[in-house]
Design a protein around this nucleic acid. Structure first.
Lengths: 227, 227
DNA sequence: ATTACTAAACATCGAGTAA
DNA sequence: TTTACTCGATGTTTAGTAA
C-alpha cells in the first residue's frame, strides 16, 4: 500500500478545507502553492503525486483542474488525525521524581506552621500538615528539570501574607503519591531557601515515622498533571 | 518563528506517545529510528534539529539521552492536531450538482408509481412522489463523477420486489434542495435506463409546473451528506 | 491565465565509522 | 553499547520557461 507522504499532509488538509471531500473543487496550483507556503511548481507536483497514489482525483476543465479527495485519501487523513489526537491524550499524565530523603533545617516546618498558612491549608487541601516538611534531594538532572516545571504549572495556591515583622510568600501545592502509597503534597515556595535540587513535601501525618524512612532512603514521588 | 518541519511530526508524535510531555524519558536514537521507520542517524538528526528549534529538551545521562517535549513543541502538535481535526469536520457537507432539465421518456414515472414502490415511499420518505420524475442532464465531468458517489453512499433504501412478470430493483433516495428552494429527492436506481450523465429527482409536487421549469432550464441540486 | 517540464539548488536519508 | 560525524544517494523544491 502506498503510504501518504509527510509533505503531502498540508496539501491534503488544504484541499479538505476547501471542500474537496465530496465535490470537485476548482483550485489552481498557484493558489494551492500559496496556501501551503510552497511554490506553484511544488503544488503541481504534489497534486500529480497525490493523484498517482490514489489519494485524490482530478478533472481538467479547460486549463484548470478540479480536485476531489478519494475515500482512500480521506481515510488516510482521518487515520493521521486520530493517531495525533490519541497520542496527545494518552501520555501518562503525571510527573515522576526520584531522589533521597535529606534532613532539612527545620525552617520549612516553622514556616508551614504559621497561622497565616495553616488556615488556608485547612480550607484548600483539607488538612493541616504535620509540622515538619520532608526534604527530598533530586540527584539526576532530569528530575531537577522536571521539578522546575511546577513553578509554571497551576496548583492549589496558598496566598502569602504579612505580619508586623515581614512578608511571607505564596505556596503552591500539588497533590502526589510517595512511593506509590502515601498521600502528600509537593510544595513550591515563592521564596525558597533551597537550591533547585531539593523539593519539599508535606502531608497529614509524620511520614518519616509512619513509613519508617531515614536519611538517604530512596523516594519516588508521582504527581498527576491535569490538562 | 521557527516552524515545525513536516518530517518531524512523526518523531514528536512518538515522543509524546512515550510520555515525554511531562517527564524526561530515556530513549535511544536507534529505538526512535525504528519507531519512525527511519535510520538511527535520521532519528539522531531529528532530535538535534528539534532541540535546536526549541521543540524538545534533552539531558544526557551517561551515553543515553532523556528527552522531554517543551511547551512550544507540545503546543505546535496541539495546533497541528486541531487544524487537522477541524478541517476534517468543517468541510461543506453537501454535494452540489449542476445541469439542465431534459425530458424523460416517462419510464421513471411509470416505475415510481408502482404500488411496490409507493407504499415504501409513503413510510420511508413520508410522501408519495408526484408521478413523473425530473431528469437532469449533467454536462460537466465533475458533476457526473460527483453524482456517481451516491451509488456507494448510504441513503434511504426502497427495497426491490417482484410481480408475476418481472423483478424491480431497489431505489436509493437522498434528500436534497433544488435551486436552493424546492425539496426533492435524488433517486439512484439499481438498474438505471440512463447513462451516467442523467440523474433523476422526485418530489411531492409537480416541480416542472410549480417552479415553471422548461427543458434546458438550468438546475442546481444540493444534497447534504451525513458522516 | 493555466499546468508542468527541466535543471539546478537544497534537504533528507542512511551506510560507514569515529569517539 | 551509545550519539553523531562525513558524504554520497535519493527526494523535494523552485526558478526559468514551454505549451
Amino acid at each position: 500500500m502506498t503510504d501518504l507522504k509527510v509533505q503531502h499532509i498540508l496539501t491534503l488538509t488544504q484541499l479538505i478545507a476547501r471542500g474537496a471531500r465530496h465535490n470537485f473543487v476548482p483550485i489552481t496550483t498557484s493558489y494551492l502553492g500559496k496556501s501551503i507556503k510552497k511554490s506553484q511548481q511544488s503544488a503541481s507536483k504534489h497534486l500529480r503525486e497525490l493523484e498517482e497514489d490514489g489519494f485524490i482525483e482530478r478533472i481538467m476543465n479547460g486549463r484548470k483542474f478540479s480536485v476531489k479527495i478519494t475515500s482512500k485519501g480521506y481515510s488516510e487523513m482521518v487515520k493521521l488525525s486520530s493517531i495525533l489526537k490519541s497520542s496527545l491524550n494518552s501520555f501518562p499524565s503525571f510527573v515522576e521524581l526520584k531522589g533521597t530523603l535529606v534532613s532539612g533545617m527545620g525552617e520549612g516546618a516553622y514556616y508551614m506552621s504559621l497561622k497565616g498558612y495553616t488556615k488556608q491549608f485547612k480550607s484548600k487541601i483539607n488538612y493541616i500538615p504535620f509540622p515538619g516538611t520532608l526534604n527530598v534531594k533530586l540527584h539526576e538532572k532530569e528530575y531537577i528539570e522536571a521539578a522546575q516545571q511546577f513553578r509554571t504549572l497551576n496548583g492549589v495556591t496558598i496566598k502569602g501574607f504579612c505580619d508586623s515583622k515581614r512578608t511571607y510568600g505564596w505556596v503552591k501545592c500539588f497533590k502526589g503519591k510517595l512511593n506509590n502509597s502515601i498521600d502528600c503534597e509537593l510544595i513550591i515556595l515563592e521564596r525558597t531557601h533551597h537550591d533547585d535540587s531539593i523539593i519539599e513535601l508535606i502531608s497529614k501525618t509524620n511520614i518519616r515515622k509512619t513509613a519508617k524512612l531515614r536519611d538517604n532512603s530512596k523516594l519516588t514521588i508521582r504527581i498527576p498533571i491535569k490538562g
